[in-house]
C-alpha cells in the first residue's frame, strides 16, 4: 500500500516536472490544449480542429481542442490570456472581435490584449452584402439607391451589435451616406432563413457562411468587402469595384499566452508555417469556403494593432453601444 502511494507520488512529481521548464528541445512532451472561444461545430471550431490535426502531426503530440464558449468569446480569451505560458495551452482568436472588448467592455472585460501573443493568422473571411435570388436589386448601386430613396426603411441584417458584420454595415453607411434599417440576428444561419423567407431585404454577413447558398443560386452577393474578388464566389464584385471603399472581414488565427519561452514560440511558429503551406490543409479550408490569409508573428501583431487603432478611433468618434 505504502509502496503504491510512493509510486503514485513519484509519478505525480515526474509528471509535473516537464511543465516547470519547457525547452524547445524536448517540447512538446505532452498533448497541447487549444482553447476555442466558441462552441463545437461552429466555423471557428471547425477551422481550429483542422489546424490542430495538421499541427499535431508535426509536433508529435496531439493538439486537443477545448471549447470554452460564452460572452461572445470573452470567456475563452480570458482563459487563454491567463493560461500558463508553457506552450501547453494555445488558442484561437477572432479579429476584430477580440480587439473591441477591451474598450467596448472596458469595465468588465476579463483579459488584457497584451497578455495574448499572436502566432499565425489562418483565415480572413470578408464581409458581404447579399440579397435573395428573387430580389429586385441586381447590383450594389440598385440596392443603395433604394436605401437612399427610402432612408431607414430598407432592412439589413447583422449578427449583433458591435460584431464584425455590424461594424462593416456602419462603415458602409459612413462611406455612402445610406441609412439602413438594422434587424438584429443571433448568427448568420438565422439571418439567412429570414432572407430566404423574404422577411428582410438584405443580409450583411461573412462570405464563408453565404457561399454555399450563393453557389446554389438561392441568394445573390451584391458586394464583397475585400481588396480583391474571392475564389469561392468569383462572380461577386468587390465594394471598391462599385465605388464603395470598405474593407471588412473576420479573421481567425492562433495565439499563445504572452511570456512564452522564445524557443517554444519559435518552434510553434515554424510548425504553423509548415501547416498553412501544406496543400492538403489548404484544400480542406478551400472546401469550406474559408479564404486562407497567412500572417505570422510580428506581421500578425501589426495587423491586429492597426485594426485595433481603426476600431478604437471609430468607437471614440461614435460609440455603437451607448450607456
Amino acid at each position: 500500500m505504502r509502496k503504491t502511494f510512493a509510486a503514485f507520488a513519484a509519478a505525480a512529481i515526474l509528471g509535473f516536472l516537464p511543465s516547470i521548464g519547457a525547452q524547445a528541445a524536448d517540447y512538446p512532451r505532452k498533448p497541447i490544449e487549444m482553447i476555442v472561444a466558441y462552441g463545437a461545430g461552429g466555423s471557428t471550431d471547425i477551422m481550429a480542429r483542422i489546424f490542430a490535426k495538421y499541427a499535431g502531426e508535426r509536433l508529435g503530440q496531439r493538439v486537443v481542442v477545448i471549447n470554452k464558449p460564452g460572452a461572445g468569446g470573452e470567456i475563452g480569451w480570458t482563459a487563454l490570456a491567463n493560461a500558463k505560458p508553457d506552450g501547453y495551452t494555445i488558442g484561437l482568436i477572432n479579429s476584430p472581435v477580440v480587439e473591441v472588448y477591451p474598450f467596448t467592455r472596458a469595465k468588465t472585460v476579463g483579459y488584457d490584449l497584451k497578455k495574448i501573443k499572436p502566432l499565425v493568422n489562418v483565415v480572413t473571411d470578408p464581409g458581404m452584402i447579399a440579397v435573395s435570388a428573387g430580389s429586385p436589386y441586381k447590383t450594389l448601386k440598385d440596392f443603395l439607391d433604394a436605401v437612399k430613396a427610402r432612408p431607414g426603411e430598407v432592412t439589413l441584417s447583422h449578427e449583433g451589435i458591435g460584431g464584425d458584420d455590424h461594424l462593416a454595415a456602419l462603415n458602409v453607411q459612413k462611406a455612402t451616406g445610406a441609412k439602413f434599417k438594422f434587424v438584429t440576428f443571433n448568427g448568420n444561419a438565422e439571418a439567412t432563413v429570414a432572407l430566404l423567407g423574404g422577411h428582410i431585404h438584405a443580409f450583411e454577413g461573412n462570405m464563408s457562411e453565404a457561399a454555399a447558398q450563393i453557389k446554389e443560386g438561392k441568394i445573390r452577393g451584391l458586394a464583397i468587402w475585400a481588396a480583391k474578388r474571392q475564389d469561392a464566389v468569383p462572380e461577386v464584385p468587390t465594394g471598391a469595384e462599385q465605388g464603395v471603399n470598405v474593407i471588412a472581414a473576420a479573421s481567425r488565427g492562433v495565439a499563445v499566452p504572452a511570456g512564452l519561452p522564445k524557443d517554444v514560440y519559435e518552434k510553434l511558429l515554424a510548425v504553423s508555417r509548415e501547416v498553412v503551406a501544406d496543400p492538403a490543409f489548404r484544400a480542406e479550408l478551400a472546401k469550406l469556403n474559408m479564404p486562407i490569409n497567412p500572417m505570422f508573428g510580428d506581421e500578425y501583431q501589426k495587423f491586429l494593432d492597426d485594426s485595433f487603432k481603426t476600431l478604437k478611433a471609430m468607437w471614440d468618434a461614435e460609440p455603437w453601444i451607448k450607456e
Binding site: 460572452a71 461572445g72 467592455r105 468588465t108 438584429t184 443571433n186
Partner: peptide, 16 residues
C-alpha cells in the same frame, strides 16, 4: 445583442 447592454450580469462574465 440589440443594444450591447449587459443585463443583470453583475459584472460576471459567466452570466453574459
Amino acid at each position: 445583442n440589440f443594444t450591447g447592454f449587459r443585463r443583470f450580469t453583475f459584472g460576471n462574465s459567466e452570466l453574459f
